[in-house]
Write a protein that binds this DNA or RNA. Sequence first.
DNA 1: TTAATAGTGTCTGTCAGACACTATGTG
DNA 2: CACATAGTGTCTGACAGACACTATTAA
Lengths: 229, 229
Amino acid sequence: MITTQQQPCVTVDLVLLTLKNDELLASLVKRDHEPLAGVWTLPGGRVHPDEDQDALGAAVRILKAKAGLTSPYLEQLHTFSGAHRDPRGWSVSIVHYALVPYASVQERGNDRLWWVPVEECRSLPFDHLSILRLAVARVRSKTLYSSLPVHLMPKTFSLSELQRVYEVLLRAPLDKRTFRRRIEELDVVERVPGLLQKDGAHRPAQQYRLKPFRAHALATADSNLALRA
Amino acid sequence: MITTQQQPCVTVDLVLLTLKNDELLASLVKRDHEPLAGVWTLPGGRVHPDEDQDALGAAVRILKAKAGLTSPYLEQLHTFSGAHRDPRGWSVSIVHYALVPYASVQERGNDRLWWVPVEECRSLPFDHLSILRLAVARVRSKTLYSSLPVHLMPKTFSLSELQRVYEVLLRAPLDKRTFRRRIEELDVVERVPGLLQKDGAHRPAQQYRLKPFRAHALATADSNLALRA
DNA sequence: TTAATAGTGTCTGTCAGACACTATGTG
DNA sequence: CACATAGTGTCTGACAGACACTATTAA
């Protein structure tokens, strides 16, 4: 493989995010090849032209292989490239980010995944720290004006729980009335008829779920365009 | 690994946009190689690992080579990839978009560039029409909340001219007072001291220019994050 | 009853839109 | 002067934030 050097190596890396105990977590895997075998990095892998339709397809495949997840919210983030990001030479990483409910992470308990609070990630190999930071920034930014965080929720949830998730992502308290008005306008969740959550000495909460047609949003491009147009 | 063929071809394509006579124009070039030699497409080319630092560097090089332009607003748009977008096989295009003042297009008059009103682009080879549409949508979207369109303006301009550009991009009339309040808040342009534009039987207009530190914005990532944080 | 959280009614300050007004040039 | 465009003052309706209030459960 002397000429492979001429053509850049094309990979897909993933930033897999979930929320547990009011903390945003990212998943890392242990590298099994050199260079840096045994070091924790973002999950990723080469594109397989023979089996992947496109980069999104590769992301789906890698997500399935490394995390056992099949249909979370998945969107292209940015493409990182250059001569110096990987010691093996000029490389391209088409980075995608995914949001997963912590419940589905637990279901498919996967020892090879390590979930780290994003705030505690201070160093990662290659350019993976910048990648992680960009993904987190993107999610926080979209949280300001979209319903993106619903993809971090379990199948059903209360509006108070959803508000808590927004507050964690935005690192600021939100007003209950304002929050509920916004969510209603966004029109992405619906009441689960008759389902209440009783969990303590207080009024039970109406349960909500993602509206069906939004449930498997695989955004291939800037889906926020529609929101503001 | 027998597999140089297996490695996808990595290219950078450009959506070069300018504004002339109240119309948004995109630039096309005539392909000089097969397949589709002689057909008009978006400018682009392979990444040159030996001379390009990264994809942005390749974009800058291609922009210089094909359009003679050196420092317009340039930003990564999206990466298009897959087995079916190019007959030669699995390919990756890291698409960037650039905004250029029509004045600088004229200076470096380049016969090989054809400027087409984006509304009139009804078909392009490969997936270039989707690419063009996404770029235009991105620019229009950012116009709603950012100062992006200033990069389409000549060195100095009046606020009325800038408003006209916003109106063309948004395809809607804007209120003068509201527009000027917004531009002032964005804090990206400054008065050119004492410079007035006299062009008719009416009060002359104060000239403005980009604030210096923003003049050469080469965004490597989502620069709109900062705007909304 | 109290405590705790769910959910609603409603006031108010802010601000975008609307638009009338003034300013300043040419002919 | 008339006319055209530049630029400003200011009113107002809509709405986000604030917060008090009611609702409903367990203990």
